[in-house]
């Protein structure tokens, strides 16, 4: 670990395409910390981006789960029971992104899948599931449900485009 001067802390690269765009547009440099020495980690990510993405995904998936359960024709008619089922389903969805990879890892290790690759695979699968839910919501008669579905599809499309743009710029500016 190499210490860096505390006055010029290295900037944390964004994880997402949207975060990369916001970081490129925002002019304010990071505030120098009131410290004498800084040991930066090799893997660094912006705090605001992490927490914002987490809050966004949590709020969107909870809202989608509530809508799906409230509009479902097969569930019991009791409103509290439907809300309870929605929250349980939401918790199960969140936990499936942790438990299922853990259970599948012994099998996936046979195809030489490292934990890092497994985490990326989990991330993509989880986002794909949310995108499928968003597609389903866009066909809902309720305006709020359709708006929610469209919001997610817009965000995910923008994210894909920006990630492609970022990769393209990085590739173009890479010295040969």
């Amino acid at each position: 670990m190499t210490p860096a001067p505390a006055q010029i802390p290295p900037r944390k690269p964004a994880r997402t395409g949207l975060g990369w765009l916001i970081q490129a547009l925002a002019k304010s440099p990071p505030t120098p910390p009131a410290t004498d020495l800084l040991f930066p980690a090799s893997e660094r990510h912006p705090t605001t981006e992490t927490l914002t993405a987490s809050c966004l995904i949590a709020a969107w998936s909870l809202a989608a789960s509530l809508i799906l359960c409230l509009h479902s024709e097969t569930l019991p008619t009791s409103l509290p029971l439907r809300c309870l089922i929605a929250i349980t389903a939401w918790l199960a969805l969140i936990h499936s992104a942790v438990i299922l990879p853990l259970l599948a890892y012994p099998l996936l290790r046979l195809v030489h899948l490292t934990p890092q690759k497994l985490a990326t695979l989990t991330e993509l699968t989880f986002l794909s599931i949310l995108t499928l839910i968003a597609c389903h919501l866009t066909t809902d008669p309720s305006l709020f449900a359709r708006s929610l579905g469209l919001l997610w599809l817009t965000l995910i499309m923008a994210e894909i485009m920006l990630r492609l743009a970022r990769s393209g710029i990085a590739l173009a500016s890479h010295p040969r």
Partner: peptide, 8 residues
């Protein structure tokens, strides 16, 4: 294995 956006 937890995706980074689910950790918080």
């Amino acid at each position: 294995v937890t995706p980074w956006f689910l950790e918080p």
